[in-house]
Computed example of a mutant assay.
Amino acid sequence: MKINKEEREILEILEKDARLTASDIGKMIGESEQLVQAMIKRLEEERILVHYTTLIDWSKVEDDERVTAMIDVKVTPKRGVGFHETAERIYRFKEVSSVYLMSGAYDLSVTVEGKSMNEVARFVSEKLSTLDEVVSTTTHFQLKKYKHDGKIFEEKQIDNRIVVSP
């Protein structure tokens, strides 16, 4: 779908801060609140604007034991549908938070969240690897998140100590 300059601006603004109101966005791009609301509605209906999200640093929340794994999946594509049908089967699992078709040695990149490494391992061995189209998997566990969706999780600390030299 072709979008106009104002719609592109709206998308870029919302990508940076989805909490802004139509009134605020209208002031930023020089359009009325009603026109901005209409453009946002159109972008939502066309599924260009898919979802509004919040980015949370769960590592700072006590007693939150989430484990995230990125799994490279080698797949045998099905005749007539390619990778689409397999990707759809995979993204329907509740443990899966994202699926991407990739270039390179593996076909799909699957992000999985669980309560423990064991839970993720069970998902891979009991659900993912049992699919007929899945040839192989490689699982990478996320140890620390530095940056996600363009946002840095920990700003560099400035060392304010006085340098002492002999």
Rank of each mutant, 00 (worst) to 15 (best):
K94H: 09
K94I: 04
K94Q: 09
K94N: 10
K94P: 03
K94C: 00
E95D: 15
E95L: 00
V96Y: 02
S97E: 11
S97P: 00
S98N: 13
S98I: 00
S98H: 12
V99F: 06
Y100L: 13
Y100S: 12
Y100N: 13
Y100F: 11
L101I: 15
M102G: 00
S103N: 06
S103V: 05
G104N: 12
G104M: 11
A105V: 14
A105R: 15
A105Y: 06
Y106N: 04
D107R: 11
D107E: 07
D107G: 04
L108W: 00
L108R: 12
L108A: 02
S109E: 12
S109P: 01
S109L: 15
V110L: 00
V110I: 07
V110T: 04
V110Q: 08
T111D: 08
T111G: 00
T111R: 14
V112T: 09
V112P: 10
G114E: 09
G114N: 11
K115P: 03
K115N: 12
S116V: 10
M117V: 12
M117D: 09
N118W: 04
N118A: 12
N118Y: 07
E119V: 06
E119P: 07
E119F: 05
A121F: 02
R122W: 01
R122H: 08
R122G: 00
R122N: 12
R122P: 01
R122C: 01
F123R: 04
F123K: 01
F123P: 06
V124P: 00
V124D: 00
S125G: 05
S125R: 14
S125K: 15
E126A: 07
E126H: 03
E126I: 02
K127V: 06
K127T: 03
K127C: 02
L128W: 00
L128P: 03
